[in-house]
């Protein structure tokens, strides 16, 4: 029941819609607006579109400077270049001065076409999450991503918005509105809690359905607000279900698994299983090949949860 839309598909139309009502919205791009699907904004508001070229460091510092003149700047390029290439610019030109720049990180995690290891962002959540003033979010589907953009346009301060490349099932309920620091529970359950976000949320939810057939009732939480994280939902899940599994489209070091471990160890220590990329680099391949290689298919997630519950 895959919907036809990928999270990136709604970027241009949503930004253009926001640009209609808010003359302060500006989009800056580092030569990625076509695959990044932000062209609709560029076409509608060419005077509020800044093409920086393949110069991501310049992109981030220009966005910081432009925001000081009162603009809400969306600075957009591939996740790996937002985080790894322009890390220091994001720190000094955006996060430290606490400026109103929304960094749109495109091609989240493993799913980057067949671009392979250099283009797979398995570190970006860790990098951005550990930077003061920065907030980190990723929508599970196109509708949630659109809601995140609307929230970002009204929010003051730095945000890192990670955006998936490929179609996902529609997961968030009709009328849903994203809020920083709030998760959504997609499925109730008392035996274990699966916490995910972004592109792998669909597989995570399907894994829970598969587990139900084997008598395991898993709660499923969509943690789209990775920072600030929904501590309350994590603690409640730990208290009510006893065990937690996280599913990361990222290295398990620094990603959601780490963030959840931090909350659990401080507030309610229970057993935790971190599913994700286990401290290796990525590969070229189709998404299907990728999921199999890294053990992230629905059946892989379900099997790992069952094994974890047996321990």
């Amino acid at each position: 029941m895959a919907s036809q839309l990928a999270p990136r598909d709604i970027l241009g139309s949503t930004l253009a819609e926001l640009g209609e009502s808010d003359p302060n919205i500006v989009l800056l791009d580092a030569d990625f607006c076509t695959p990044g699907k932000t062209v609709a904004f560029k076409n509608r508001f060419p005077e509020r579109f800044v093409q920086v070229g393949i110069a991501e460091q310049n992109l981030m510092s220009i966005a910081g400077g432009l925001s000081t003149v009162g603009f809400t700047c969306f600075a957009s390029t591939i996740c790996v270049f937002c985080s790894r290439r322009a890390c220091d610019q994001v720190m000094a030109s955006i996060a430290l001065p606490n400026l109103n720049v929304k960094i749109l990180g495109l091609y989240a995690g493993l799913f980057v076409g067949k671009n392979g290891a250099t283009h797979q962002s398995l570190e970006d959540i860790g990098i951005m999450r550990s930077m003061a003033h920065m907030t980190v979010v990723q929508g599970a589907d196109a509708a949630e991503t659109a809601s995140i953009l609307r929230y970002a346009a009204a929010h003051k301060g730095p945000m890192y918005v990670r955006v998936g490349r490929d179609p996902t099932p529609q997961l968030v309920p009709e009328g849903y509105k994203f809020e920083l620091g709030r998760s959504i529970t997609l499925r109730q359950g008392t035996d274990v809690t699966l916490i995910g976000y972004g592109d792998l949320m669909g597989n995570t939810l399907e894994a829970a359905e598969a587990l139900a057939k084997q008598g395991v009732q898993a709660r499923v939480i969509n943690m789209s607000s990775l920072k600030p994280i929904d501590r309350e939902a994590i603690v409640q899940a730990a208290q009510e279900t006893g065990r937690i599994v996280t599913v990361d489209n990222h290295n398990i070091i620094g990603g959601l698994g780490s963030a959840v471990a931090e909350v659990l160890s401080e507030e309610c220590p229970v057993k935790l299983k971190r599913i994700g990329v286990r401290d290796t680099f990525g590969r070229s391949g189709t998404n299907e090949e990728m999921l199999k290689w890294f053990g992230l298919r629905t059946e892989d997630i379900a099997a790992q949860v069952l094994e974890f519950l047996r321990k």
């Binding site: 460091q57 310049n58 510092s61 400077g65 432009l66 000081t68 009162g70 603009f71 720190m91």
Partner: peptide, 30 residues
Amino acid sequence: LGLCPGIEMSSGPLGQGLSAGIGMAIGARM
């Protein structure tokens, strides 16, 4: 920026200020 009046941009890690100034110059034009 934000700590001392008059400072227009945080700086220190070298190389970034000209880009930030470009952002302000574009902002003036917009």
